[in-house]
Design a protein around this nucleic acid. Structure first.
Lengths: 200, 200, 200, 200
DNA sequence: GTATAACCGAGACGGTACGTCCCGTCTTACC
DNA sequence: GGTAAGACGGGACGTACCGTCTCGGTTATAC
């Protein structure tokens, strides 16, 4: 017995158009368009597509942008799984590299700005872009606790906030210019060792 | 004796109008309007003022919002100056409380979203809203290093990113619902002690 | 013996669909839809038919409407052929009755509006709907001239314009409300006798 | 005591824009645009005006066209007032000349087509364009009755329908080609004398 | 005490983009 | 091959605001 794969009536949607739209969106953003300036009409024109074809697929600009976003998130690199410190550095370094890419940063900012205008978008973004990484990090931390590398009373959520937040904060509000290449390493070390003076 | 301020000829600008505009802006945001939806016309209507009167004072919507923002930042509470831990908790708790207020959170998000569209706004926001707090925190950390409470090789910027970022991350992407009241305290403790297992 | 009609290969066109389309068109017009508002999509939906099925049969909206029109023209009643006056009254009374029917009036107006946008439609309409009646009227007038009932120097075209035009003008621009039942009779009498005062 | 002529607040509407819009409308129609093809966007572009400026003044295309129409109706020529026949010929000849002008004919057709879609337009058109002429004609006929030139039992409305309708019918459905120059004269003569054979 | 200059509200201006509707064409799967 | 379904690129719709520009009126100083 096979699943029949319900073939919907009518002409099927063009994958080509879909790709062209996503590409056009990313192109325009990469050219420095803010989200507010990013108009559906411009996207349609650039993609060589009717507006209808866009609206058929996405209810509004934000949905489209979030989907576009999903296509470019860097896949997580494999983790060695030996040292907690090393794995964390690998994870945070992904963030550092992304922050250096204009397109990624724009998308990130955009979604943050829309965050409490639309609960739906927020959840979508969290699910697509954030949660996989958080899951990976949570796993690393949990393993660290299990192996005794990390303190047994560690609050995982808090630990993640510390690590992730430090990168974000540095990226967003830190000193201007490119991020130092060893940023991830240093963040991890500070977080692991704590700020307190080592007691005798 | 100096001339106080060049008294320009003609009718002076109405302070009342100015206040009404700022209030209207904040009102509308508090009612859930995002920045993109926030139209000058709506503000003018709500404030009972002509569009001209707004444009005479602010070149565009963002300037207006940033100014509005400046009016509502909670002043920093006084710090006891005795324990680094206590002072940090006080500072971070301001953030926690702000995050609970809808209006503040909207403004924060808004500015973050506009951040790389307009360098000017970014700098303005950093100067008005961020830097005072960072200065205070930097001072606390520096004092901690000096007194030996904190490790002597502490990277201040990194420390700040850790603390500030953790709050931001938790606030923005953490588990739904109200923030726990002891959040600031726990963040500070984790940051100070580090995630690592205490070594024998 | 002749081949009746080339039986084309494949599935024959559905007569049912054709009728449904025509009916839907007339329905929609009767509901007050102007021609510009009358959309092919609406017709297709109402008829329970795909757009393709319409476009396969008619090149455009106007063609369809003209065909629809052809289906509802009232057949000319038989003429007694004795008195010119009586026959003319019969002919004009058809017009009066049609003018009282909403659907017919809409179609008439519609075609008049499209008249100089499309020479083709104009001619089609004249041929289908107008010419048979004009022919009948021309014949009556010609007979009248022959029998001496009508003046020998009568310009047939002009006479027809007088009679037909009076009905049209009255219908279209005359006093509001229903047309008087004896309208045709009175028009004919005025036309026959002329407006001039009978000279001694 | 004088009427104050209430000066409305705000910037007054530009007469220049108004004229440009009307002109653009007539231009486009004269270029053969049907009414359905005549788009507000095209008018705005041609007039060098924002769409808003059009919609501020007219609620829809038809209103605009009717107003445009009002600007080009040929003023009625003065009537000698001596002979009913001469005056009628003058009046009908205005119609003949108009029918020869493309722009006028388009407008006329257009309004006729919209007639029962919008009672408002119909009334407006009747009032602006039709009634003045009908009034003039009614007056001539009434005078003719009074002076004895016309039959005392003449139904004025019917007489008008006869004359006006004949012109319209001839114009619209008569033989192709230009209208004969003496059309008005012949229509009037047929109408006055009647179609009937002169009785001994 | 009056002229004058900058303010005020209102609202029209030329525009841009919106999201919707329908066009006429096309591409499927099914009959 | 006919059919219903429905996607396609396109164009116009009428609306909302944009930022600018007149208007007629209102203050508050400077002459």
């Amino acid at each position: 017995m096979t699943i029949q794969h319900q073939a919907r009536a009518g002409r099927p949607r063009s994958e080509k158009a879909e790709k062209a739209i996503i590409e056009a969106t990313l192109d325009l953003m990469a050219e420095g368009m803010g989200v507010a300036e990013l108009s559906i009409e411009a996207i349609a024109a650039r993609a060589g597509v009717g507006k209808t074809t866009i609206y058929r697929r996405w209810a509004n600009k934000e949905d489209l942008v979030v989907d576009a976003l999903a296509t470019i998130r860097e896949p997580l690199p494999p983790l060695a799984g030996e040292s907690v410190r090393d794995d964390l550095i690998v994870l945070l370094d992904v963030m550092r590299r992304e922050a250096g890419r204009h397109r990624d940063r724009c998308l990130m900012n955009m979604v943050m700005g829309e965050t409490d205008r639309s609960q739906r978008i927020r959840e979508r973004f969290i699910k697509i872009a954030l949660e996989p990484r958080r899951a990976a990090m949570r796993q690393v931390l949990a393993r660290g606790v299990a192996t005794g590398e990390l303190r047994p009373d560690l609050d995982l959520e808090l630990g993640m906030a510390l690590l992730h937040g430090a990168m974000m904060s540095f990226t967003k509000w830190g000193p201007a210019g490119d991020l130092p290449e060893d940023l991830a390493e240093r963040v991890v070390d500070h977080a692991l060792d704590g700020l307190r003076s080592p007691r005798a």
